[in-house]
Amino acid sequence: MNLNAVDATLNKSQIRFAIKSAYPFKRFLNRFDQNGDLVIWYPRYYLTVRIEMDTYLKKGLQYSDLVAVDALRPLSERVTSLPEFSGNYSGEGIFPEPKISAKDAEKEAIDLIKGIVLSRNKLLKDYHIECTDSKLVHLKTFVVKLKNRTAAEWLYIDEHFQAACAVQKRPEILNCLKSC
C-alpha cells in the first residue's frame, strides 16, 4: 500500500491516561480490563497555503503557512510542521476513507487562514491566499478494547494530539468500527 503513514506507539501510561480522561469518576469504582487494541490510520490533509497581503504600512508581504484539515470531521487547524512520514507502508489496521477531496480541503484551509488574516490585521488593505501543496497523511491512532464494554465505551487514543476519549465521543471512529 502506498501512503504517507505516520507511526506511533501505544504504552500502558497512555491507556491509563485515556481511562482517566474518558471516565474520570467511574475509574475509582470500576476496573477496566483491556482486551486488545485496534489500529486506525486516521486521514488528515496537510496543506501549504501561500498568503500575499498589503497593509497600509507595508506592501507585498508574502509567506507560507501550514494547515491540517481533518478528513473525517469538519475541523482544521494551523500546524507548525509536517509530521514525519515512515514512507511507503503496508500494514494492518483500519483505513477510514477520507470524506472530502483534496480540493475541498484546500477550500477549508484557505477559509481558515482568511478568517485569521481578516480578524487580526487592523491595517489590512488587500490580500490573496492560495494553496500551493497538499498531502493526504494517515496518522496511526488506537482503539483500546475494554472487557465487558460496548464498542461505544472503548477508548480512542490519538497519540499525535495527546487526545483520549471514549469512542462514543468520536462518532466517526464508531462508524469505522461498525463498518469493519
Binding site: 498568503i51 508581504l61 509567506y63 503557512d65 494551523r78 488574516v117 487580526r120
Partner: peptide, 11 residues
C-alpha cells in the same frame, strides 16, 4: 514579516 515568521497569523 521579512522572515519566515508569519505576519498575519502570528505563528
Amino acid at each position: 514579516t521579512k522572515t519566515d515568521e508569519d505576519f498575519a497569523v502570528a505563528r
